[in-house]
């Protein structure tokens, strides 16, 4: 670290890295424990919905919740706001 670096601070991005990882790791763990068809199902649903509404891939959440005796497949689509 030289004279210049001493005065020039690099932005603190570690917390950003941690936050992004927390989200993606949690998401990938859900997919991992779920059946193999979830990612494909999510992609095909996206293709269908896109025909009617212009949504982001990120706006579609497909999760499989385990409840007593049965599983619940939950589909959540955040539609874009007006304007």
């Amino acid at each position: 670290m030289g004279l210049l670096a001493f005065f020039r601070r690099t932005p603190a991005t570690a917390s950003l890295a941690k936050e992004r990882l927390r989200i993606i790791v949690a998401q990938e763990r859900t997919n991992r424990d779920g059946p193999d068809y979830l990612p494909l199902l999510r992609r095909e649903l996206f293709e269908v919905i896109k025909k009617y509404v212009n949504v982001d891939p990120e706006a579609i959440q497909v999760t499989l919740e385990k409840e007593e005796g049965h599983d619940v497949l939950e589909l959540s689509v955040a539609l874009p706001g007006k304007g």
């Binding site: 601070r9 690099t10 932005p11 603190a12 991005t13 570690a14 917390s15 890295a17 941690k18 990882l21 927390r22 790791v25």
Partner: peptide, 17 residues
């Protein structure tokens, strides 16, 4: 770099994984 907030700490990595 951890002290400067440029790198995730041991505890951060441990917590995520």
């Amino acid at each position: 770099r951890v002290a400067n907030g440029e790198m995730m700490s041991v505890d951060d990595v441990k917590e995520i994984l």
